[in-house]
Amino acid sequence: MNKSIELEAIVTESLAGKRLDQALAELFPDYSRSRLKSWITDGKVTVDTKVIEKPREKVVAGSLVAVDAEIESEERHEAQLVELDIVYEDEDILVINKPAGLVVHPGAGAPDRTLLNGLLHYDPQLDLVPRAGIIHRLDKDTTGLMVVARNVPAQTQLVSMMQA
C-alpha cells in the first residue's frame, strides 16, 4: 500500500538563491533531505509548474514549489499477534519495553513472530512507515525501551534527533 504525498509552498526571501534540495528541506522538514533529493531526481518536484530534476538548481523568492510523490511500502511483512509491552503511546510514537528473546526485524534466522510483525498487527497504519516505524534496534537477548514512529514526519524527526 503506497501513500500519496502532495506538498506545496512558496519560496521565501530567506531561501532565495539556495539549492532546491536545501530549500525543500527547510520548507518540508517532516521529510528527510535524502528522500526530498530522490523525489527531485525522480522528477516528482516542480518549480512554477516546471519539473526540476537537479537538486543543485537555485530557487527564486516567490516561486511555487510542489511535490507530487508516493512513499512506497517496503517489503511486505505479515501482521502477527505478538504480545507488546507498550509503556507509552500517542499519535506520533510508541514506546515499547522489548523483552529478551524477541527479535526486532524479520530475517533469515527469524522470518516471523518479530517485533515488526507485532507492530503491524497492533497498528496496521505502520505499514505506511518505513520499517514499520522502527528507528533503532536492540539485540535479540537485550531488554529495553524502543521508540517507534507512527508516521513518516515523526520518523524523520526521531532519526534526526538520534543522529544528533
Rank of each mutant, 00 (worst) to 15 (best):
D85L: 08
D48L: 08
D42V: 00
D85C: 11
E78D: 15
A79R: 04
E72Q: 09
L115A: 04
G109H: 01
Y88S: 10
G101E: 10
V82S: 02
I86C: 09
L81E: 14
V82I: 14
Q80C: 08
L102E: 01
V95F: 08
S73P: 02
L115V: 05
K44A: 13
V47W: 06
A108C: 00
L84T: 05
T41E: 13
A79V: 07
P99R: 14
A69Q: 00
P111F: 05
V51A: 12
T41H: 03
G101R: 07
T41I: 09
T46A: 14
G101P: 10
A66M: 12
Q80H: 07
E70P: 01
L102I: 10
G101N: 11
I71E: 05
T46I: 12
R56Q: 13
D112L: 06
V47P: 04
E91I: 09
D85M: 06
P111L: 04
E83R: 06
I71T: 02
T41P: 03
H105L: 04
V45W: 04
K44S: 12
N97D: 13
I71A: 03
Q80N: 08
I96M: 14
V47C: 14
D48S: 11
K54H: 10
A66K: 15
P99K: 13
A100E: 15
R76E: 14
I86E: 03
L64N: 14
K50W: 11
A100I: 05
T49G: 03
K54G: 06
G101H: 10
I40M: 04
G43I: 06
T41G: 01
